[in-house]
Each structure stands twice: as C-alpha cells, then as structure tokens.
C-alpha cells in the first residue's frame, strides 16, 4: 500500500511539472507583459527596462530554468544589465532576483507591483476555499437527496419534476443565474447583499450560483447510477429475499452507486475552480478565480504561474485521495493495477 502511495506521489510530481511547463509555454504565447505595465505609447527604452528587470529579455529556456530553480548557482544573481538609453548613453538596469519554484518563489507579481506572486495567491485562496466548500456541500448533499428520491420513485411526478429542474439548472449559464439571484434577492427582496464578501450572508448567492451546475449533474448521475444498481441481479436477489426496500437501498444500492460518485466528486473540484472564475467575477468575491482571470488578462505571468501551480497541486492531491478511497471501496480496481 505504501509503495503504491509513494508511486502515486511521484506521479503527482510529474503532473505538476507538466502543468508548470504548460502554463509557462502558454503564457509566453500570449504576449509581452511589459507593454501592459506602461502607458500604451511608451518608448522602447522603458519597455526594455521593465523586461530586463523582470528577466523577460532572457531566452525562453533561461527563463524556464530561472523560473524553476532561481538564481543561486547561476550567474544571474544580482545582475545589472546595461542597455542603450534613448537620450544617448547607457542605462544601468538591476535585475530582480529569483528564488525559483523549488524555493517557493514564483517571482514578483507584475500587476501587484513589488508583491511576491505566491503570497498574492495564498492570500486569496481562503476566500475561494470558503466559497467552494459551501458550493460543494450544497451540490453534493442536495444531489444525493434528489437523486435518491428520483431513483426510488422513477417515472413519478416527483421524479419528472426534479429531472426537469436539474436539466433547467444545467441549461442556464451560471452568469445568468447569478445575475437573476442578485436581482431577486438583493434588489427586489433586499434580503441578501448584492455583492462583496465578509459575512455568511455574502456567501449564500455565490455558493448557489457556483454549485448549481454540479448539483444538476450529480442529481442526474446519482439517479441513473441508482437505477442501474437497483436493476443488478444482486439487488433483485436481496429484494427477493424479502429485505425491505430501505435496507436494500442502504446496504447494497447506495454503496455501489457511491463508488463512481467518489471519482465524480474529485473532478467536481476542478469544475468548481473553473466556475469560480465566473462566480467570483459576478459577486466581486476576492478569491483565486477572479485573481486568475485578472492576472491572465494583465499578463501577470508570475501570479498566473503561482495560481495554476497551486490549483493544480490541490486538484492533484484531492484526486490522489479520491483514487485511494476508490481503490479501497472497490478492490477490483486495486487488483487491476
């Protein structure tokens, strides 16, 4: 078992490396951040100065190595670069030092001037976690209840009603749901604050907005999973043996439904991160989702890299745990490895 976990951890490191490489390359393709840090009509000298300062003038592979391992041991540390000044003569530009990912230093944010990128991300994460946890609980628990209700009484009015609701939930873009909620609960009824964060009240609408897609999807899958299982031979056998319906559901059906659901929940973490971008933008929630989109549009490479690293790390760890639980629930999978 421990060997298995170790191997999975090694794989996780590989995945994180893949993510880092991907985000590095992709951000490079999106353009030069220096021109976004200066007025649009800036002379070449100013742009070059910013590029040198943040190490953006170096060849790509040097940038990547510095990104991963920092300055120490290379000739980069404390470097000063001389460049042509527009008025003639030379300009001395100090290069900002880098510690590298291995020391937890992703560099300084280009947007939040002078602030360490990882710090900016970590500062924001608790707010996202709060929102995602609320949305996750809302989605998972309600979906179990709805899914069970549907599966136990298939083709009834209740079943149909919940299914249509679930489908409508899926068919409404979350930005619309969010805007409608604000209109109803903040403007018309005046019950909840329209935006911002701080109190529990602020959490209600964003959590519903963020969780609704997962809720709809999970309800559907719990229902179909339960229906599948209820038709399996062993459940029929259990029924035939005269076990009460509730016992059948609790002992056999739920268990076998839960196994694939656990994987789904793991994936939901990713869905929630994606949804958080939109939800946090609408409700002005100061979390990582909003940070990521703001940082990408501003080409804040260090913060994007730090945020993606962090999100990926969490995602990989969550799914590692999910896989372990999955293997533990369903020994066939473990044997299969």
């Amino acid at each position: 078992m421990w060997r298995y976990i170790l191997r999975r951890l090694a794989q996780a490191v590989l995945v994180i490396f893949g993510v880092l490489l991907l985000v590095f390359v992709i951000m490079q393709l999106t353009g030069d951040p220096a021109s976004l840090m200066l007025p649009p009509d800036s002379p070449a000298e100013d742009i070059q100065r910013v590029r040198i300062m943040y190490g953006l003038d170096r060849p790509l592979y040097v940038q990547f190595v510095r990104f991963l391992f920092g300055d120490i041991g290379t000739r980069e540390a404390g470097r000063t670069v001389r460049t042509f000044a527009s008025g003639g003569g030379w300009l001395e530009v100090p290069v900002k030092p880098r510690g590298g990912v291995i020391r937890g230093d992703f560099g300084e944010s280009l947007r939040y001037r002078e602030q360490p990128a990882l710090g900016v991300v970590l500062e924001r994460f608790p707010r996202s976690l709060e929102l995602m946890a609320a949305a996750f609980l809302y989605a998972v628990l309600l979906s179990l209840v709805f899914g069970l209700l549907c599966a136990l009484r298939p083709a009834t009015l209740l079943d149909q009603g919940i299914r249509v609701l679930a489908i409508l939930g899926q068919s409404m873009p979350s930005f619309w749901l969010g805007l409608l909620l604000i209109l109803v609960f903040a403007v018309w009824l005046g019950w909840l604050p329209a935006m911002g964060s701080g109190t529990w009240w602020h959490l209600v609408m964003p959590a519903i907005t963020l969780g609704s897609l997962s809720l709809a999807r999970n309800t559907r899958l719990v229902r179909s999973g339960m229906l599948d299982v209820l038709n399996e031979d062993y459940v029929r056998t259990a029924r035939a043996k005269g076990l009460t319906e509730r016992l059948v559901v609790a002992k056999h059906a739920l268990k076998n439904t839960a196994i694939p659901l656990v994987t789904l929940w793991g994936l939901d973490v990713g869905v929630l991160f994606g949804g958080a971008v939109i939800t946090e933008s609408i409700f002005a929630w100061p979390g990582t989702g909003r940070l990521v989109i703001e940082s990408v549009t501003r080409r804040d490479f260090p913060v994007v890299q730090a945020a993606v690293f962090f999100i990926a790390l969490i995602f990989v760890l969550v799914n590692l745990v999910v896989d372990l639980v999955y293997g533990w629930l369903d020994p066939r999978v473990r044997v299969g490895r």
Partner: peptide, 19 residues
C-alpha cells in the same frame, strides 16, 4: 472602495443600498 466588473451588479448594489 470595491470592484464589481458587471455593470448590472453595480446598479443592483446601488439600489440595494449596498453602495
């Protein structure tokens, strides 16, 4: 000072006395 990128959310906040 706060930021809300959606114009209709800003208006909603104003009308809900949140801004």
């Amino acid at each position: 000072f706060r930021t809300a990128s959606e114009p209709s959310v800003r208006v909603s906040a104003l009308l809900a006395a949140d801004a």
